[in-house]
Amino acid sequence: MPTKREIEIRTADGVCKAGLFGPAKAKAGVILYMDAFGPRPALDEMAERLGSHGYAVLVPDLFYRAGAYGPFDAKTAFVEEKTRTELRALIGGTTQEMTARDTASFIDALAKAGATGPIGTVGYCMGGSRALNAAAAHPGRIVAAASFHGGNLASDATDSPHRSAAKIKARVYVGSAGVDGSFPPEQSAILAESLRTAGVDHILENYVGMGHGWCVSDHGVYDAAGAERHWKRLTALFEETLA
């Protein structure tokens, strides 16, 4: 059975705490990019499940530069003004470029743990765009990248993932919520066209009836059936690319 190991990863900007899951001798690795509420039991459970498939799974605290924060209740944190303000500051203070740069250290940490083979990435909410941008920043190592209810994947921002599609060598899977203001149909169309033009092997799938956050068990919109569908897609992606 996979077990959690608490580790510290030295980056260019400090020390990032992370959870490492899965068997001790896994060759393939997965980086799980958190949603806005940070590492917590719900994400640990997801990493445990991925680790049970034989992968070394890393869950880094992307907000490590901010020092102590939270914990947050995923059901209410964006409703209450105090925690909403804190979350927005954390997200705004952790840029896409920072996470893409940190990913080199995350890959090194997996290698030190024995996962010297191919790497997959998966991200939820704010982590979705980071999983795709990581694949663009490290095309020589990352062979699969997945985003679930990821927001702003094809926005006007200069660091929007669709702008780096030509750098991606990984297979890409994007699962979007049925109705999601952070990733509306027009963004989905732009992302699909960018990936197609770049020659990226990709699938964009709309989970009709699912809300933003449906995959993660402590979200108010968690949907068990929709989450199981997400697991089938994610494990199939990694079985086909990380073997």
Rank of each mutant, 00 (worst) to 15 (best):
P2S: 10
T3V: 13
T3P: 00
K4W: 06
E6A: 14
A12P: 06
D13T: 09
D13V: 00
D13E: 13
G19V: 03
L20G: 07
P23C: 04
P23R: 08
K25A: 15
K27C: 01
V30F: 10
L32W: 12
A36T: 13
F37Q: 05
F37G: 03
R40I: 07
R40N: 15
A42T: 11
D44K: 01
A47R: 02
E48W: 12
L50T: 05
S52F: 12
H53Q: 12
H53G: 06
A56T: 01
A56C: 06
A56G: 10
D61E: 13
F63T: 08
Y64R: 03
R65H: 07
G67I: 00
G67S: 02
Y69M: 10
P71T: 08
A74C: 12
E81H: 08
R84E: 06
E86H: 03
A89K: 15
I91N: 11
T94M: 07
T95G: 14
T95Q: 08
Q96C: 14
Q96E: 15
M98V: 14
T99W: 08
R101G: 13
A104V: 05
D108E: 14
L110E: 05
A111K: 14
A115M: 05
T116K: 14
P118K: 13
G120H: 11
T121N: 06
T121S: 03
V122L: 14
G123H: 10
C125W: 10
M126H: 00
G127R: 10
G128V: 06
G128N: 07
G128S: 07
R130G: 00
N133Y: 11
A134I: 04
A136K: 06
H138P: 04
R141V: 01
A144N: 04
A145T: 01
A145I: 05
S147Q: 03
F148E: 01
N152P: 00
L153R: 09
D159V: 13
P161A: 02
H162I: 09
I168S: 02
V172L: 00
S176Y: 15
G181Q: 12
P185V: 02
Q187K: 09
S188P: 01
A192L: 13
T197N: 09
A198Y: 09
A198F: 05
L204W: 14
E205P: 04
G209M: 11
G209R: 10
G209A: 12
G213I: 10
V216W: 04
H219D: 11
V221N: 11
D223E: 02
A225R: 11
G226H: 01
G226T: 01
H230K: 05
R233G: 00
L234H: 13
T235W: 13
A243G: 15
